[in-house]
Amino acid sequence: MSSLLEAQALNAFYGDFQALYEVELSINEGDVVAIVGANGAGKTTLLRSIAGLLKNDAHSIRFNGTPIGHYRADKVAKLGIALVPEGRQLFPSLSVEENLKLGATVGRKGHWSLHSVFELFPILKERRAVASTQLSGGQQQMVAIGRALMSNPDLIMFDEISLGLAPVIINSIYEQLPQVINQGTTAVIIEQDITRALSSASRVYCLQEGRVKLSGRTDELTRQQITQAYFGVAA
């Protein structure tokens, strides 16, 4: 299978500070890839680099073979990569419906529309006119996911999908996830909960201090290997 997204020797910087070192990554179409690692391992930086919020060397990231490392975020979005950012980051001045509509700015056609997003998350239809700030955390996450889906992406990335949400809410979000991904979308998930990450993903990458420490199919890796890569070398 050809890879949809590829990272080669990806180095990312915040000013003088280097956050990623020579990261190699390959995501095939239809994959669900989990990225795990401790705080500060570079998970968010990786997603920000792919999404175009951090400028990189052109050839360090390829999407469908096209070098996109140097693309601005809006150009990346138009190619079909969507990011559900950490902490939801809805637009406070916009209503629920307006937030969703804004997600459709890129104008890509596909399964997702206001109608199908409301079908997936019926509560949002009820609260469509409400300011996004008045929603509960779980509902906000639904808007954030819906907003990303509205662009009908080929690749959707979730940064800390369950951070700050109650366990019940997390369960229901994960229950909806297959529906989200089954529409021919490839997904990348950042998740703190290793068990959950392994059960929903087909491949996993462990990052540590900006480097890929371990990667492989979830069914081929042992939990011990992952824990070790997560926490660093056991003393």
Binding site: L53, A73, P85, Q89, F91, P92, S93, L94, L102, T105
Partner: peptide, 24 residues
């Protein structure tokens, strides 16, 4: 209008607006 929505979105958060495909 859609333009107004874009104005408010970039005003709220330029990075996220850019992620949604807006060229700020």
């Amino acid at each position: 209008t859609a333009l107004g929505r874009q104005f408010r979105a970039v005003s709220d958060n330029q990075d996220i607006a850019q992620l949604m495909g807006l060229n700020k």
